[in-house]
Amino acid sequence: MTVLRYAAFTRDPAAGNPAGVVLDADTEPGALTDAQMLAIAAEVGYSETAFLTRATDGYTVRYFSPKAEVPFCGHATIASAVAVAERTGPGPLLFHTLAGEIPVVTSRDADGQLTATLTSVPPTVAEVPAPDLAEALAALGWSPDDLDPALPPRIGFAGARHLILAAATRDRLADLDYDFDRLRNLMLWRDWTTVKLVWRESETGFHVRDAFPVGGVVEDPATGASAAALGGYLRELGLVRPPVRLSVLQGEDLGRPGHLTVDIPEGTGGIQVTGNAIRMT
């Protein structure tokens, strides 16, 4: 079994978010079972490994963390699209995921590096029940005063569900030391894929972190699925004026800086997330 390793949302193999990619998962050396895919993801040890099989109009893609399958993963989508583009050339792709159809376009940027743009499923936003918010803050060791009142807590969805919490200061965002088991149990109960912690530096500039205990890791270094959910959240709550492009920085506090470009169109359609990916040695 060949597992390709890419760093997504970066041009530096030592930065961004590592993802495993298995091309031709149905033929190399044979169709993989769910248990085998989970075992491979656990052995790879990244937050996500993507398994691709050919479909008549694109690829069927499944995403596994070391602990469980997830319906959609943005950084592994970017990595997978670049891996396909390296094999067949850049252009449009269609990924069939458990969350729905995800169109992806690969191209070369101004420096000749491969880049990929995914379009999420239509996002939704929901209120956070007060007991769930209180439990999440307690698990994080945050108080209500640590939150930015201009960006209220919500559940954002753009292929997977994420609790979105905005920190009042950059220092609060940087100081992440949470109760792993307590937060994981809440997230499993509420079907949250990550807890997305954000700090708004400017109108279109954000620093973010994603707690990911349900995937078996403390933190995801660069998270495309939750970036799309953030875009839907900002549009739904009227916190940006679409069409607008966001610059999202993630991974700095882990020593693996990544950059995600998020385009928010008008209306109710999917959110576009763009980034580079590079093969890791």
Rank of each mutant, 00 (worst) to 15 (best):
I264M: 02
T124E: 12
D132T: 13
A225N: 11
T2V: 11
R190C: 04
D109I: 09
A35N: 05
A130I: 03
G216E: 11
T204M: 07
A39K: 09
P242T: 13
G215Y: 01
T10R: 06
H96Q: 13
P152V: 12
L186I: 02
V84E: 13
H162A: 02
A39S: 13
F51S: 02
T49H: 08
A8V: 07
A211K: 01
A134D: 14
V273E: 07
T274P: 02
Q36I: 01
D26I: 02
T194D: 14
Q272A: 13
F51K: 04
V61W: 09
A41T: 05
G231N: 07
V105N: 13
R170P: 01
G159Y: 00
R279E: 14
T115M: 08
L52W: 09
A139K: 00
D12F: 10
P242G: 13
A76T: 13
E127R: 09
R200K: 12
H207R: 13
D148A: 14
G216K: 07
A277H: 01
A83E: 09
D181M: 00
A8S: 14
T33M: 08
S247W: 08
M187F: 00
P213E: 03
A8Q: 07
Q272L: 10
V244P: 10
T169M: 06
P144S: 07
A25S: 13
A14K: 04
P149R: 04
M37R: 14
G232L: 07
D263R: 14
V262N: 03
I78E: 09
T60K: 10
L140K: 03
F51A: 04
Y63C: 02
I78W: 02
Q272M: 12
L4E: 14
Q36D: 09
R279F: 00
G270K: 06
L197R: 05
A116T: 08
G91I: 01
E48T: 11
V104K: 08
V3M: 11
L32V: 10
S107Y: 15
L165N: 03
V195Y: 02
V121D: 07
T274M: 00
A116V: 04
E266A: 14
L186R: 09
P152G: 09
V104M: 12
L98Y: 02
T10H: 10
A25G: 11
G45C: 11
T88D: 15
D24L: 08
V70A: 11
H162K: 04
E101Y: 11
S120H: 07
V214G: 06
D220F: 06
V84F: 06
G89V: 02
P90K: 00
G269D: 11
A42G: 13
G232R: 04
I264S: 03
A7L: 05
G16W: 03
L234W: 03
T88V: 14
R62N: 01
R235N: 06
R209K: 11
D175K: 07
I164H: 09
T261Y: 01
H259V: 15
P152I: 06
D146M: 01
T53I: 08
P144K: 04
D191M: 08
F157N: 14
V198L: 15
A136Y: 08
